[in-house]
Design a protein around this nucleic acid. Structure first.
Lengths: 267, 267
DNA sequence: CGCTAGTTTGACCTACATCAACCTACGTGG
DNA sequence: CCACGTAGGTTGATGTAGGTCAAACTAGCG
C-alpha cells in the first residue's frame, strides 16, 4: 500500500480530509460562498469543536467559523507574541507547537492533527505564547475568539465542549509531564507512538502503520531526548521486533509489546 | 524574623489569609450565614476568579460560591476518578496535585497557593484526573461547576476570566515541559524557586525568603529529579552564595545569580 | 548528478540516579 | 522533661542512561 496512513475500511469518515491538501477535493459547499466553512457538513465534526451540538446549533456555528486558511509546510500559523484574535481548528495537515526560552533552546509542546484546536494558549495574555508550525501543507478553520465566547454564552453545549477541549489539553500536558519527569527513553518513545496511532485510528487510519510527519529532532524535542537517542531507540525497537522502521514509515508489529513497555516499571 | 513568609510592608493585602488556618481570624462575613463565602469581600479577589469583575457581578458570584471546605494537612481534596462537580479556589494553605501511572510512579504536576484554582482537569471527562493533596491545613472555596458555567453565560467578564485561568494553566504546563525537557538540575531548581517567590510576592510576601511547604521528594517529583539531587543542588547553591538553606527555610541571597542560571545555556 | 537535510551508528563522556550511611528535627509517651 | 522513634534531609561512593562528538549513509530535489 502506497499510503500506510490510508483509512481502514471499517471507520473511514473523512479520508479525503486527511490527505495532503493537493489531493483533496472539497465536497460541494452548502453555502454559496465557496470559501466559507460549514461545520455542519464537516467530516471532522465528531472530533472537533462541534461535538455534541444539535443541527440548529451547528448552523449557528457555521456563521462563526469565518474562513479557512492555508499554511505551507514549514510556515507558521502564528508566532509567539502575535496578537491573539482566533483559535484554529486543523482541517487538513499536521502542526507542531513549540516554545523557546531566552537562550534559544526550544521545546516542542505538541503535535496537532485534523480536528484539534490550536491557539488556546493565547487567551491568557491576548498574545500567542508559542509558535505553531505546519509540518506539511495544511489548512485550518479560523475561529474568531470573541465570537466563540459570544456564541458559547448562547449555547451551553458549545460552551461545555469548549471547556472540555481546554481541560483535555491540561490533562494531556500533565501526562507529558509524567512522561518527561519519570519515563526512560524507550517508554517515552513507545508512549509517543501509541498516542499517535490511537489518535490516527480515531480518524479512520490504521492503528498499526503510520508516516511520521516530524523529524527525529522534533520527536526528541517533544520527548526530552536528543535526536540520536530517538534514532537509536527506533533501531532498538526494530531489533526487538516491535516495529518496522523505514525512515519515517513506521509499522507496529507488536503492539502488546509496545504497550507493555509503557506500563512496566523498569525491564 | 520568625515567619520569613511574612508580608512585605508595601504590598500586604491579605496577610491573614496566608497564615495557617489555625492562626487566621475571618473578617465579619457580609452575609448572615457565617459559612457562606463572599468573593466580593475576599482579599484574594484580585488574584482569583473574580479578577476584573464589577461590584454587581461580584455579588452574583457570591451566590455561586457555596461553601468553604477545610482540608487537613496530608488529606486529599479530591482523588483521581472522583466524580467532578466543582472547581476549588485555594483560600488558605497549600496544595500539590499529582498523577500516577499504572505502575505506581507518580508525578507532581503543580503546587497551588491562595487564589489559585484546583480541579480544572476534571471538566474533560467529568472525573478528576489527578489527586489534590493539602501540604498544610488548608481551606478552599467550593465553586459548583455547573453554576459557574451558567453564570459565565450571563457575565462575559466572568467567562473571559475563567478562560484566561484555564489558558494560563496550559501556558504554565508548557513552561514545565520546557523545564523537564531541556533544563539541567540547577536550572530547574532555580526556575522553581524563582517561580515560587514570584507568586508569593504577588501575594504580599517577601520575594527573598520563603518556607517550603513540600518535601525534597515532592520538589524532585515536580522537577523530574531524585530527592538526593534536589538536596545536593540546594547545598551547591548555598556553597555558591546564592541561597541560605536551613531545611525548609530558604533565603535567596543572590537573586540575579539565580536568574542568570535560568537564562544561561550551560555554565 | 551533486547538494542538502535528515538519519543512523559508533566511541566516549557526564549529569544524574542509585545505594548506603548518617544526621537532624520534631512529636509522642514514659 | 527527656528519650526515643520516625520522617525527612544530607553526603559520599559508584553505576548508567542518555548526551556529545564525529563519521558515514540515504533520499529528495533543483
Amino acid at each position: 500500500m502506497l499510503n500506510p496512513n490510508a483509512p481502514t475500511s471499517d471507520t473511514a469518515p473523512q479520508d479525503a480530509l486527511l490527505r495532503p491538501a493537493s489531493e483533496r477535493r472539497d465536497p460541494i459547499p452548502m453555502k454559496i460562498d465557496a470559501f466559507k466553512v460549514a461545520c455542519s457538513s464537516c467530516n471532522l465534526r465528531e472530533l472537533c469543536l462541534p461535538v455534541g451540538l444539535s443541527q440548529p446549533q451547528l448552523t449557528q456555528l457555521d456563521t462563526l467559523v469565518g474562513a479557512r486558511k492555508s499554511v505551507k509546510r514549514g510556515d507558521a500559523l502564528f508566532h509567539t507574541g502575535d496578537s491573539f484574535k482566533s483559535v484554529y481548528a486543523v482541517r487538513t495537515g499536521f502542526f507542531k507547537t513549540r516554545i523557546s526560552s531566552e537562550d534559544g533552546r526550544d521545546q516542542v509542546t505538541g503535535f496537532q492533527m485534523a480536528g484539534e484546536l490550536l491557539g488556546l494558549d493565547g487567551i491568557s495574555t491576548d498574545r500567542h505564547a508559542c509558535d505553531a508550525i505546519a509540518l506539511e501543507d495544511s489548512q485550518v478553520c479560523v475561529i474568531p475568539y470573541s465570537q466563540l465566547e459570544e456564541l458559547s454564552r448562547e449555547f451551553s453545549d458549545l460552551q461545555h465542549q469548549f471547556h472540555k477541549i481546554m481541560s483535555r489539553e491540561i490533562v494531556r500536558d500533565h501526562g507529558v509531564m509524567l512522561l518527561l519527569g519519570s519515563m526512560r527513553a524507550e517508554e517515552r518513545l513507545a508512549a509517543f507512538l501509541l498516542n499517535l496511532t490511537q489518535r490516527l485510528h480515531a480518524r479512520g487510519f490504521s492503528a498499526s502503520a503510520l508516516v511520521l510527519r516530524m523529524t527525529r529532532e522534533e520527536i526528541g524535542s517533544y520527548l526530552g531526548l536528543k535526536l540520536e537517542t530517538v534514532s537509536r531507540t527506533f533501531s532498538k525497537f526494530q531489533d526487538e521486533g516491535l516495529l518496522e522502521v523505514k525512515q519515517r514509515d513506521i509499522r507496529i508489529t507488536d503492539e502488546p509489546g509496545l504497550k507493555a513497555l509503557v506500563n512496566s516499571v523498569r525491564c
